[in-house]
């Protein structure tokens, strides 16, 4: 897999969530994503960026344009140094929330991506990586 472009954005306030969305949209358009695919990856990015802000106390978003053979895609990594998730399985269930949201952030983002990885250590932080292919 080749990484064609690599940007990192800081997520510290709600405006940064908007900025992540715009950046992901621009990358998806440049990679030739169709409208529905664009919308899916931007929405997933929005969910994860907000999670990073609300539950992780802020962090960073890494946006990579990747190429695997003939397939182009986007890989997004959201990282925080927050409290971490004690039970990842539970957090991935629809409707599970600790923050008063709908509890669709993680599970929804997973459904909107082709690849999904989560790594979380209590007391250290959480890293979520998703990828969507054109």
């Amino acid at each position: 897999m080749i990484v064609a472009r690599d940007d990192t954005l800081v997520i510290r306030n709600p405006d940064d969530v908007v900025r992540v969305r715009q950046e992901v949209r621009a990358r998806a358009v440049a990679a030739g994503f169709g409208l529905v695919d664009q919308t899916k990856i931007v929405t997933a990015a929005s969910e994860l960026a907000r999670n990073t802000l609300d539950y992780g106390g802020g962090g960073k978003a890494r946006i990579e344009v990747v190429q695997n053979g003939a397939r182009k895609g986007l890989r997004l990594t959201f990282e925080d140094q927050g409290p971490g998730i004690p039970d990842v399985e539970l957090a991935l269930k629809d409707g599970y929330t600790t923050g008063g949201g709908l509890g669709l952030g993680l599970s929804g983002a997973r459904r909107l991506s082709n690849e999904f990885q989560i790594h979380s250590v209590v007391g250290e932080g959480t890293r979520v990586t998703i990828a969507r292919w054109k």
Binding site: V36, T43, L102, G108, R111, L112
Partner: peptide
């Protein structure tokens, strides 16, 4: 919009 509706359904809303 259609793309928004499709995504929202996928999201589970």
């Amino acid at each position: 919009r259609p793309a928004v509706a499709i995504t929202l359904v996928e999201l589970g809303l």
